[in-house]
Amino acid sequence: MKTWLITGCSTGLGRQLAQAVAGRGDRLVATARNAETLRELCESYPDTVRAVSLDVTRPGDAAAAVALAESAFGGLDVLVNNAGFGFIGAIEETEPSEYRPVFEANVFGLIETTRAALPALRRRRGACVVNLSSGAGIAGAAGSGFYNATKFAVEGLSEALAQELRPLGLNVIIVEPGPFRTEFLGRSLAVAAREIPAYEETSGRRRQYRQTNDGRQAGDPAKAVAVMLQAIDAERPPLHFPIGPVAHRIAETKLEAFRADIDAWRALSIATDFDAPSRRAAS
């Protein structure tokens, strides 16, 4: 039986994961900015689920949630950093007041929640940090640059964290979902207020995608959660874990393009070291 702390449990994959974790009998500290949204979950599992308000951008909230896990259940085995939101807008279209909050939630909130949980996690060998990235954390796309940037940050941070925690017997998993039928394209997605006509064929298409695909995504959230649980429970969990055919296609396309650039420019781009001293100069 594991003890979990999951952020962003009010909707989407966070909600699905919280229900699955509770349903299989694990202990759970479920969090949301408004803990009242988790009342039904707590009432269904009064012995094993606790709910607490956690805004990842508010100092002290994460530490209080970790303290609850330790006081109520004696420790912490799995942290899932799920809270965050998406954003659409071309780089030029977007104001700092629009894009900075995305970084505060998706990057700095994740960092502070992780830092608060690590002392408790280090006391449980085999504990795990699960960071929700996205297919957007694998490859950039027009109209999603700021969201891409936050998820790229999550990827780099997680890779470094994995190297720091592996010798301590802890695991890190970067979950990289494609499109799933959650509220992500609805209430969990912000859009730049300004539209510049020059970007109609790039970021404009991303705006249109949001309007035409909300609630029609092919991915089943319940199936996503099921495979996440298998990865988290695995003896040797993956570091990178793309979920769904779209995420796999993004990853494969990125790898192919990256390899093509490396191969095409290898001879020129590696010839950058100082010239080796000649034998005559050495003698």
Rank of each mutant, 00 (worst) to 15 (best):
G25L: 07
A160E: 01
E159G: 05
F184N: 05
A234C: 12
A247F: 09
L170W: 04
Y45K: 13
S53H: 09
M228S: 03
G156H: 10
V56H: 05
Q19G: 00
A117T: 00
L118V: 03
F180H: 14
R266W: 03
A63C: 09
P242E: 04
L229C: 15
A198N: 07
A267M: 02
R249Q: 14
S144W: 12
L5D: 03
Q217H: 11
A35F: 03
G74N: 06
E256N: 05
E252K: 15
L13K: 14
E176F: 12
R181Q: 07
R115E: 03
P245C: 00
G186L: 11
G219C: 01
G145L: 09
C9R: 08
P46T: 06
A116K: 02
D26E: 10
A136R: 08
R259W: 05
F241A: 02
G126T: 03
T150C: 15
Q211N: 12
E104K: 09
R58F: 08
L161N: 10
N171W: 04
R166Y: 09
V227H: 09
A160W: 04
E164P: 03
E195W: 05
L161H: 10
L38H: 06
G215L: 01
R24A: 13
A72M: 00
N106W: 01
F184A: 08
S134E: 01
L110Q: 04
D55K: 15
F180E: 10
L239A: 11
D261T: 01
S133D: 05
